[in-house]
């Protein structure tokens, strides 16, 4: 089983296996390095970086829910300059693909981050985050409207030839319309999905539990939502999809591949079990064998109409 080839590709980005760490759940890499063999991962999506430092939201910033997790971190980060100087060198040496998640309030802010990243050779892909529910302006606003989504994608496309992924929000009626817009504007792939807008109430304090009031729901609770979005987006666009939402097992990965994803990201599951991604990578060969295939690539899109 050890010799199984787990390689996949997201457009021009070749991954040793389909399992990447999701942005926001894995810091900038070193945080989990004592517990996770980073070089075994398909890739690491770094926490979102903005042109200038962002402070983030007041606590509480997380709240556990049934089969899920609400967060309102608010994209706290030290800014792209500090990231490039202090954090990127570690990622560059980690022996895995480096995806840099980019955030901003305005088109210009997204562009400033991407321009700064152009000077860095260690960046394998840029993931444009137009779908974070935890900031008031920018972010999700871009992800909820095809015109704005296309505008920010095109602006970034004009300044980089790097692989450009756009992370989609599930908090829209038709995510596939946003996917079409960003594909037309030059995106090389889409990541689906970001967190689902939600809220918890703290009975004791009689008010919303999170400091940011509402937040983004992640974890197994949103897996069906994510699979539905991946399945719909896969029928709407020709560019590859990175599937994300509630993935905990090799079987979950197989489901996302069948729905049309070319690779996946694992986020919330890492918190309960930091070895989740390595365990999935260990389990994948046997899972593939049970499904009667020899590589993950064979599963991609198998559940889509016309492929059955």
């Amino acid at each position: 089983m050890k010799g199984v080839n787990l390689e996949v590709a997201v457009g021009a980005v070749r991954l040793a296996n389909p399992v990447m760490a999701a942005s926001g759940t894995f810091g900038f890499g070193p945080e989990y390095a004592d517990l996770v063999n980073l070089s075994r991962l398909g890739g690491i999506a770094a926490k979102g970086v903005s042109p200038d430092p962002w402070p983030g939201n007041p606590p509480p910033r997380v709240w556990e829910t049934e089969s899920g997790l609400l967060n309102s971190i608010g994209l706290q980060n030290p800014g792209v300059e500090v990231f490039c100087r202090e954090d990127l060198p570690f990622l560059a040496a980690a022996g895995t693909r480096v995806v840099v998640n980019v955030i901003g309030h305005t088109v210009d802010e997204y562009c400033r981050v991407v321009e700064r990243l152009e000077a860095e050779s260690a960046v394998d892909a840029i993931e444009l985050n137009i779908s974070c529910p935890n900031i008031k302006e920018g972010g999700l606003t871009f992800g909820q409207d095809p015109i704005h989504a296309a505008e920010v994608t095109a602006a970034v496309r004009a300044i980089t030839r790097r692989p450009l992924w756009v992370k989609l929000s599930p908090n829209v009626a038709e995510p596939e319309r946003i996917a079409e817009a960003v594909a037309t504007a030059g995106a090389d792939a889409v990541t689906a999905i970001n967190t689902v807008l939600g809220m918890a109430i703290d009975l004791k304090r009689r008010r919303p539990a999170l400091g940011g009031l509402s937040g983004g729901l992640s974890g197994p609770a949103i897996k069906p939502i994510a699979l539905r979005v991946v399945y719909q987006v896969a029928q709407a666009v020709d560019i590859p999809i990175v599937g994300i939402g509630g993935i905990r097992t090799a079987e979950d990965v197989a489901e996302f591949l069948m729905a049309g994803a070319s690779a996946v990201m694992v986020g919330t599951a890492t918190f309960a079990d930091p070895t989740t991604m390595e365990r999935i990578i260990d389990d994948l060969p046997e899972c593939l064998e049970r499904l009667g295939v020899t590589t993950p690539i064979e599963l991609i899109g198998q559940a889509l109409p016309g492929r059955l």
């Binding site: 759940t25 606590p59 910033r61 997380v62 997790l69």
Partner: peptide, 16 residues
């Protein structure tokens, strides 16, 4: 004490 996520410094949930 603070509401905590990862415990490893990665998620930035438990801030003061």
């Amino acid at each position: 004490e603070q509401r905590m996520g990862c415990g490893m410094g990665a998620c930035l949930a438990c801030v003061v």
